[in-house]
């Protein structure tokens, strides 16, 4: 599974990197982000593309699997 490590990056870099990865990936991708609002934004992006997003807190950060 492709991993997008967007931890600590400023907006809108996590969204841009995820969008690029979704265009290239054939299967699910995993996105790592640091801030809660970035998690929400990634979930919204996945939804807007008709994908399913499952989020988990990992320590103080987040991991979102988009499939």
């Amino acid at each position: 599974m492709e991993i997008v490590d967007a931890r600590g990056l400023s907006c809108p870099e996590p969204l841009m990197l995820t969008d690029q990865a979704l265009k290239k990936a054939n299967g699910p991708i995993k996105v790592l982000v640091s801030e809660p609002h970035q998690k929400t934004n990634i979930e919204k992006l996945a939804k807007s593309k008709g994908k399913k997003a499952v989020s988990n807190a990992v320590g103080s950060e987040f991991e979102i699997v988009i499939s």
């Binding site: 931890r7 600590g8 990056l9 400023s10 809108p12 870099e13 841009m16 640091s34 103080s60």
Partner: peptide, 13 residues
Amino acid sequence: ALKSGFSLGRAYE
């Protein structure tokens, strides 16, 4: 600039 790869790098906890 963002589209061309601009970034100020990562912040850390």
